[in-house]
Design a binder for these strands. Structure first.
Lengths: 353, 353
DNA sequence: AAGATATAAGTTACCGGTAACGTAAAAGCG
DNA sequence: CGCTTTTACGTTACCGGTAACTTATATCTT
């Protein structure tokens, strides 16, 4: 009267076949529309399928052999970040339209969590995996290598991916932002972000940013890496901390737009005029920007498209179509109006007034 | 040299056993730590497991019988809405910590999509399902009923759930907001939201809202249901449409905070002062509110906790613990400062100046 | 009408694990 | 020392489908 019965109560193909007075194999053929049965038999079987409410057991099908499952494992750092939520949405919609199912893994930016998740999800014989980031633990990498299934690494573009990669060059995007801000005439620039255990995209962006700023004659006067999530409120209090320090800061670059909005609100609440008193630059171009009067200076990345593309690459690979294994999805700088371009009309970037 | 080989190349338990010079069954016992083997044998087997990089095939285990899978299917309308992203995060984190995996389904608010997803996900023999919303297609409901697995319906509180339910009473939350706004002295109130094929939570909220407003002597002068997503920009242009109509509107209630922010920005851009010229009320209390100087009048719902609770109920049920099958997670009105309370100090709600 | 061919089935074996049962050797015991 | 009990395995069967093969009947040839 417990689990056992549950099992027994389940309608299997054999029961349908028995009820219809045919063999299991004939019922299987009807359900797969494979042919080799009469119209009369088909009707008999389908009637019983409806009547008994038969639901196939895909586990058995996949397990039986040749067919691989329709699962695709997707690892995402976290969903608190709107950006990743959109990437996931793009992935799942596209995968779903091709009959695949997303098995989610929130890996919290740690390779250990990711490794555990990889081990678990591989045990379910997925058709493929989509992973965020290019860095994996050694054991994780080994399992991925040995899995023999398609793997798409997203977010960070990886010129020598395990298998396939789609994303952007975060170093370059940071560099471009740095060059832009220096080009606007800023000399003393601050940074507010969060810290992570491992090298990640934000760190790479910061590296590119620093290189551009310092190479352009500017200075990163203060760099704050909070032990917190990269959301609105940490942006708010991080800015408070930054401005409370003695460091001279004419402009702040934030890890992402959410933090930048937090920073913007802090500045406004302290009576600072943006961009006259201080410049603010974010990264990621959140949807909320679409309604803000003062457009945030930011870096636009096509998140949904990134997710869709990752799913498309996966599907192409699964269906054996030839596919380039590295795709740059691109980014574009949004000048916005939260920084002041002190050199409007000038093309030279390092022209000091 | 194709798929077949892939299969052949996979390390199965038999291969490990063969390599270690023991039977399949002994290897199985070692891996499950079930006992009944010598220390020497254990070492031999584990060595080969490491050496060959054996990964168990959970499909086979589940398929084999007694054990149910560790999958939990989770359907979410969409992730463009930050609120649902947070709910999902809460669910997956909690499920993950108990060794369960989330199989995602984005059902786009349509019962048909949900039905298709239910059919597919059930074929994978999940341990349980978590569904957003209380309304399902007839066939979907039937499949759920027959599945015999734990089911948690979230978001909408369902006093007679299929199995379990956790969420809030959306009618009441709309009612409370309506009563509050009328209590503030507003008489002519507008609404901006989006339309859906089926009755959903937002519609229920609106119903409660209307009842409170009309019952309190106020009027819904204009009600806009856009055929669009419930995000920032539709809130912006929806407000434009609303204000362009001849309807008299002193205050606008929005389907959610994202739309309310869009509306707020539209009003500000047109030189309207909030809340002096027009009141704005949202729903959901987005994280961005934490940094806005002018706190949005809204309804707070503990999203992460909602997700966590749903997962906890699922896990409790799966482990056979007794559990109440209906949990009200509650909401709380955030007065904010985007509406003007014209009766500060008064307790009577329908006091007209 | 006899043989060749097509059609509509049924039979068997297998996927990778595990439960249930069987068995030989080692250990315990009076 | 011979008996029972325990330990450490091995064997067999099965989960729910499907591939590959076999068989029985219907249809087509000339």
């Amino acid at each position: 009267m417990r689990d056992k019965n549950n099992k027994n109560n389940k309608i299997s193909l054999s029961k349908v076949a028995e009820a219809a007075g045919v063999s299991k194999m004939t019922a299987s053929r009807v359900l797969r529309g494979e042919g080799g049965y009469s119209e009369k038999t088909k009707v008999k079987v389908m009637q019983k399928v409806d009547q008994l409410g038969y639901l196939p057991n895909r586990l058995a099908t996949v397990f039986a052999g040749d067919q691989s499952s329709t699962f695709v494992g997707v690892s995402i750092p976290d969903l608190g970040n709107e950006v990743f939520a959109q990437v996931l949405e793009g992935i799942d919609r596209k995968l779903g339209s091709f009959g695949h199912q997303t098995v989610l893994g929130l890996t919290q930016h740690t390779p250990q969590e990711e490794e555990n998740w990889i081990r678990t999800v591989l045990s379910w014989q997925p058709a493929g995996l989509i992973l965020t980031g290019r860095f994996h633990s050694p054991r994780g990498t080994e399992m991925l290598r040995n899995s023999g299934i398609p793997i798409v690494e997203i977010w960070d573009l990886n010129s020598s991916p395990l298998d396939m990669s789609v994303g952007i060059n975060h170093f370059d995007s940071g560099f471009d932002m740095g060059r832009y801000l220096v080009g606007c005439g800023y000399k003393s620039i601050g940074y507010v972000g969060t810290s992570h255990d491992t090298a990640n995209a934000a760190t790479t962006r910061l590296a590119g940013f620093c290189k551009a700023v310092e190479g352009g004659g500017g200075n990163i006067t203060k760099q704050l890496c909070l032990h917190d999530t990269a959301t609105y409120y940490p942006g708010f209090y991080g800015t408070e901390q930054l401005l409370a320090s003695n460091a001279q800061v004419e402009c702040i670059f934030f890890q992402n737009d959410a933090m930048a909005f937090g920073g913007l609100q802090y500045c406004t609440s302290r009576g600072l005029e943006i961009p006259c008193d201080i410049g603010i630059a974010g990264w990621g171009d959140l949807p909320i920007a679409s309604v803000m009067k003062k457009r945030m200076t930011s870096m636009h990345v096509p998140h949904l498209k990134l997710g869709r593309t990752a799913a498309e690459m996966m599907i192409a690979r699964l269906s054996g179509e030839p596919i380039e294994n590295c795709r740059d999805i691109g980014f574009s700088l949004i000048p916005g109006s939260t920084v002041l371009n002190q050199n409007v009309g000038n093309s030279a970037a390092d022209d000091v007034p």
